[in-house]
Computed example of a mutant assay.
Amino acid sequence: MPSRELPFPLFDADNHLYETEDAFTRYLPEEYRGAIEYVQVRGRTKIAIRGQISDYIPNPTFEKVARPGAQEDYFKNGNPEGRSYREIVGKPMESIPAFREPGPRLELMDEQGIQRSLMFPTLASLLEERMRDVPELTHAAVHALNRWLDEVWSFNYRDRIFTAPVITLGIVEEAIRELEWCLERGARVVLIRPAPAYGIRGPRSIALPEFDPFWKMVEASGVLVAFHSSDSGYQRYTADWEGRQNEYLPFTLQPFREIGQWRAIEDTVASLICHGCLSRFPELKIATIETGASWVRPLLEKLAVTYKKMPHGFQEEPVEQMRRLIHVSPFIEDDMGALADLIGADRVLFGSDFPHPEGKADPISFVDDLAGLGDEAKAKIMGGNLSRLIPV
């Protein structure tokens, strides 16, 4: 039974599945077979991308995982004792069918009191950065993953679990083909990395006119675009400050990295506005997921100052444009009332990050963090807003 009885339905904007070892390789074309491998390193299974062993996810098989919500207290109350990451996370658990398959997950959602959810892959977030200089491989690997997601989870499971296929934008024509393929199979949400797109001529913003054919199709389809936390490549810039190049390791405690951790989503949203994409396609549905809200006020302030100095550089007033078109799923440590005041309760989305350790062990308890808001705002944030974006 749910831990609480609420008078409105819940639509969780941030749920995750754990991929199996063949998720990337089952449908990978023969010419790219060696690009993604699972290898043994001192008795532990690791994933290797293009021959480079990655520690991005400590256990990429997900046979054992951190307990859901293991870091909830850490994120809400800090770490005054100076515990290590391992001490904070605690003892792992065996992965259960609900983390791997939609049927058992639906049963678990019923127990949790969750009516609908967006479902995102986990390990997929390492792919694009490690393949950025070979865009053809990136598109092939993403399509292979999407075929696996569609086969195992489907993109719309009983109008309750909406699994997000990945769209990479390195080659615009390939991105359009991938989007068409996903839409034909019922996708209601797509996952895009908050980062520049890497093509054969290098990186560039996904908001430039070159990508307009893609965004035109997105707008016409009504599909929700979720910019979800990922390896956006910013570790390369952090490494310059630290004097050493190293892999982005999200599950470590690194103060300098933490300071600028949300630059990627701030830059992505700023680009969508400053490069005119949201003005050219004003009906786009955009949500930022698992990127928190600490970047929202600073970006709004920067947009206001910039518009004051150079209004001719914008097609419309940028602050109101952001408030109208960008939906934000905050972290459990964010001030929900302040965010609702800043962008409006209509633009805030409940996301539990279940079953990841950074999120909620009991997703429905997110409503407790909305104690300062009225019932109408709570109903919108806990499900009404996302139901508007993905109606059934």
Rank of each mutant, 00 (worst) to 15 (best):
T291P: 04
R388A: 12
S352W: 07
I332Q: 11
I114H: 06
K302C: 02
R130A: 05
L123G: 03
E283N: 15
A140R: 04
F11I: 04
L349A: 14
A35D: 03
Y234P: 00
F8A: 04
Q245M: 11
S229H: 09
F350L: 12
F251Y: 15
F11P: 10
V367N: 01
A239W: 10
K380H: 08
E266W: 14
G383D: 06
A70V: 05
E258I: 07
P298R: 13
V225R: 11
L386K: 04
E101D: 15
L6S: 07
P58I: 09
S229M: 07
F120R: 14
L224F: 10
L145D: 05
A340R: 00
P357L: 00
N385I: 15
G351K: 13
R347F: 08
H139M: 02
Y27S: 06
L249I: 12
K76H: 07
G292A: 07
M119T: 10
E87H: 08
D110H: 09
N15Y: 08
A287Y: 14
M119P: 01
G292H: 07
P194F: 09
M310D: 01
R147Q: 15
N246R: 13
E136P: 05
Y32M: 13
F354P: 04
C277N: 10
E184H: 01
Q315D: 13
A371K: 08
L169P: 00
G260E: 15
F8N: 05
P104E: 14
L370E: 10
F75R: 12
I49G: 08
F162N: 03
Y85N: 02
N385R: 11
P29T: 04
E180P: 09
T268A: 09
L349S: 07
L183K: 01
F24K: 12
T252K: 12
R185Q: 10
R177S: 10
L224E: 10
R347K: 12
E151S: 14
T45Y: 05
A338H: 07
R201H: 10
P363S: 12
I96F: 07
Q235D: 13
V225D: 12
G383F: 00
H312Q: 15
L339D: 06
T238Q: 14
I49P: 03
F350W: 14
S279N: 13
A140T: 05
L389Y: 08
S125K: 14
Q52P: 04
L126Q: 08
G170Y: 14
V328E: 01
A340G: 00
L108W: 15
A141Q: 08
F251Q: 08
Y248F: 07
G43F: 01
F8Q: 08
A175N: 03
G69M: 06
M93F: 11
R188Q: 11
Q115V: 10
Y198R: 01
F120S: 06
E320A: 13
A48G: 05
P363R: 05
S117A: 15
D240W: 11
E376G: 11
W148I: 02
V41R: 12
Q315V: 03
R263M: 11
